[in-house]
Design a protein around this nucleic acid. Structure first.
Length: 110
DNA sequence: ACCGTGACGGCGG
DNA sequence: GCCGCCGCCACGG
């Protein structure tokens, strides 16, 4: 019997899959930028696409709050931007205003 | 297949 | 530091 699904994996699915995998690997207490994730997923210029994928991702349990904007800016979190800071703070990543403190040393991967 | 949208990024004013 | 502009990409209607 055929167990092979009728839908072949498109390049976009592969990308999205890699994005989610990369996000899941960000350690607690560390952060990665949308651009970093895009690079890890193999599309260095697709930071914007990463934001879209993460924003519409159905998978729960992934540390989306550890994905921030370039330069250490907090970035977005839908309408719960406030919770993003709270979640980061809960694992030791402090923020001030819209900035993640000690961004350079907390950035992942090194 | 075209077009608008967005949890972005970089540069300029 | 706060806009605005434009380039980049994947996705949905």
């Amino acid at each position: 019997m055929k167990t092979k699904p009728p839908t072949r994996a498109t390049a976009a699915e592969t990308f999205a899959r890699r994005v989610l995998m990369a996000v899941s690997r960000i350690p607690a207490g560390r952060v990665a930028t949308y651009g970093d994730i895009a690079r890890l997923a193999g599309r260095p210029l697709a930071a914007r696409a990463v934001g879209r994928i993460v924003a519409t991702a159905s998978r729960r349990g992934l540390p989306y709050h550890r994905v921030i904007a370039a330069g250490g800016a907090l970035g977005g979190y839908g309408s719960a931007i406030q919770m993003k800071a709270a979640l980061l703070r809960a694992e030791g990543t402090l923020t001030r205003g819209r900035r993640v403190l000690e961004f350079s040393s907390r950035r992942w991967p090194r």
